[in-house]
Structure formats: C-alpha cells, structure tokens
C-alpha cells in the first residue's frame, strides 16, 4: 500500500544494503534509520566509535556492511579516530561523515583520507539516501 514499502523490495526480495549509523544522539540514529529503512536499507546502530568498531568486528557484519555513516563529535573513540580505524582496517567499506559542524579543513582532510561524502546536518532524506546509494555504487564499480 505504501510507496516506500514497495521500495523496500526493490530488486527482488533483497534489501538495498546494510548501513551502520554511528552517532551519540539516539534521536539522530532514530531519524537516520527511519529515513534509510524507507529506501530499503537495513540499519545497524552504534553510539560511538568504540561501539562501531565492535559492531563491524562482530560476526557477519565484517563481510556484509555496505556503508558506514559516522558523526564526528562523540565520546570514547570520536568520529575522526573511528574514520582512521575504518580506513586502515576496512578500506573497502565506504564512509560517509554526517556532522553538525561544517568545517572546511576537516572536510578536506576526511575526503583526502578516502571518505566518500561529507554531509552537514540537517540533511534531507533524499540527499542522504542518494549519498548512500552513490557510495554503494562506487564500491561495486571498484570491485570490477
């Protein structure tokens, strides 16, 4: 009945991809999850960099994680440290930074490290979904 429900099954019965959202604010995780689920993504959550590393290192996530969306200002292991960890240990998983603080220097440094997108909150659902889709597409192309 809903358009987005039909979207959930785009491309046969499979989901569009598995996304890990790393943000210390439960509200942000909730709303990003809602936005991506509508487009058929499966969404995992982590409240900081430390938890994110735990999630990616557990079980099948290691293989099945398609995109990581990461905040910067977080407790424990912050976004910048998490990005560095992901880039060196999981260079094949595309990273999108989603931050509340637009900082050109930081953005440049992240993009140089191989982060595929640098988005500033608040980001519209459509923009977020297309950033995720683009990240997955680029990864698929890289595999060829």
């Amino acid at each position: 009945m809903d358009e987005f429900k039909s979207g959930f099954f785009i491309g046969g019965e499979a989901c569009e991809g598995r996304v890990l959202v790393v943000d210390d604010e439960p509200d942000i995780r909730k709303v990003v999850k809602m936005t991506l689920q509508k487009a058929g993504y499966e969404v995992l959550e982590a409240e900081n960099g430390e938890k994110a590393i735990e999630v990616i290192n557990s079980g099948e996530n290691r293989l099945l994680l398609d995109v990581v969306i990461c905040d910067i200002r977080m407790p424990k292991i912050n976004g910048a440290e998490a990005v560095a960890y992901f880039r060196s240990n999981y260079p094949r998983v595309p990273l999108i930074v989603l931050t509340g603080f637009p900082d050109t220097d930081m953005a440049t440094s992240f993009l140089r490290q191989g982060v595929v997108d640098y988005l500033v909150k608040p980001v519209e659902g459509e923009k977020l979904r297309s950033a995720v889709a683009r990240a997955i597409e680029q990864r698929e192309l890289a595999k060829l």
């Binding site: 509200d27 942000i28 709303v31 936005t35 200002r73 509340g100 608040p122």
Partner: peptide, 19 residues
C-alpha cells in the same frame, strides 16, 4: 563547534520527522 552541534542535531531530528 559546540553550538553548531547542539543546533544541527535537533534540526536533523526535526527535518527527518517532518519529512
């Protein structure tokens, strides 16, 4: 940085919910 964080986070929530 702190202000941007504290304003843009709720804005993200507001935008997502409104959408």
């Amino acid at each position: 940085a702190g202000i941007a964080h504290d304003i843009n986070n709720p804005l993200q929530l507001i935008l997502g919910l409104a959408e």
